[in-house]
Design a protein around this nucleic acid. Structure first.
Lengths: 216, 216
DNA sequence: CAGGTTAGTGACTGGTCAGTAACATCTCGT
DNA sequence: ACGAGATGTTACTGACCAGTCACTAACCTG
């Protein structure tokens, strides 16, 4: 019954030798989970909802994932991977020029925030940062999931501080941290200010001002 | 059984004529809910847990609150009220000097973030912004709760833009938004970087640099 | 003391949710 | 065509959770 659209395959060119004609259950589940987790929060989405969205059933779910938490862990790592890919692409045209890389990144954030919600770029934005939001929901004791988020945020900080160093800024760590605050603030406020009406629209200008202040 | 400590009264000098000898059930519930919601998230705390922490029972809960959502709404408004109180106190010593007010505010954030977790100042910080975190958890359709968060964030933006205007900055709205991004980024990152090890430690310096860039 | 207010107890309903069991069917390579 | 692995179906367990009911006990006030 109910001929649901089995939707589009993700096909991120994985290690599978045979190109996937129709997406495997496991991939459909991951795809559905990514959408639902991002839109409604992790605690707000039950396994049944994921399974229904993926057009499968609970047994197939538990044949692919030992527990919901394992799916969440994969979801977080997937989001992180997609994010770095988006980041690297935004930055690539200005390799060797750290300042322009940061500026391109900030502009990319604004562009990203402007997109409705669909993953036109393999990266979600309408509800802020998937990993950051997860940090709100993951309970204190869940070291495994919390570690994923922490490592991700630490890497953001590391990269931004490195850019600051590469552009020869005074107090590069402070500049890197300030840029990170802008970035994270942009994602955080995206939750409450729809589309591109929020303060994030000023992020590129602010980043330039901060960089100027740390140069020369 | 179980002679739990009935804990300390809140006593915010309300409109009750008689000074409260022992805190009423309703206030104990609000107090417990505030702690638990902030620490574990709204969806992560059930009514039974609140009731147990408050040393009362479910019936007394539902005699005081029509539903859990009503308690959540009061929780959010309480947190907002406490936040503005903290804000106004941080800013009061520099009335008339918008620039120093902003600087004092940013420094107050750093000091706040440094505090372990207890509400030494009537304002929580160890897990970031209570209202902002709520935005992650509140489902899309819950207009009532979402409106509370939105109004709160909009007021932050309004105030910061006003400071920028009062200090005679060029493009005051951009400066106000940039300051807001720093502020929100500080709270957001506080979730993943313990104590005062995160990028928020650079917020005061960053704010000064931004203000300088918009002056003269 | 009477009557109202406030709070506590325990059991219950109806619903949700993670995870499991047993069995049936489909698909694909050989 | 056949068998194996992947997938679907139905029903279930046990836990949790919001909210309700009937009843009881303490307390305050006139």
């Amino acid at each position: 019954m109910s001929a649901k659209s089995t939707a589009a395959a993700v096909s991120v060119a994985s290690e599978a030798p045979a190109r996937s004609e129709k997406p495997r259950v496991r991939d459909r589940i991951r795809d559905s989970a990514a959408n639902l987790f991002y839109r409604h929060g992790i605690r707000g989405v039950c396994v049944d909802a994921i399974v229904e969205d993926a057009g499968t059933n609970k047994m197939s779910f538990y044949r692919s994932f030992p527990s919901k938490d394992d799916l969440v862990a994969e979801y977080l790592k997937d989001q992180e991977r997609g994010y770095w890919q988006w980041w690297d692409e935004a930055v690539a045209p200005h390799a060797g020029d750290a300042r322009r890389q940061v500026e391109a990144l900030m502009q990319a954030v604004v562009d990203l925030i402007k997109t409705k919600s669909k993953s036109d770029c393999g990266c979600r934005s309408s509800r802020g940062c998937a990993l950051g939001n997860a940090a709100v929901e993951i309970p204190e004791g869940n070291d495994r999931l919390n570690a994923i988020v922490h490592d991700y945020k630490a890497e953001i900080r590391r990269r931004l501080r490195r850019y600051a160093r590469e552009m020869g800024a005074r107090e590069p760590d402070s500049l890197g941290d300030a840029l990170m605050l802008l970035l994270e603030g942009g994602y955080y406020t995206r939750l409450t200010f729809p589309n591109n009406s929020g303060p994030v629209t000023s992020i590129a200008k602010a980043a330039r001002a901060l960089i100027d202040a740390h140069m020369g």
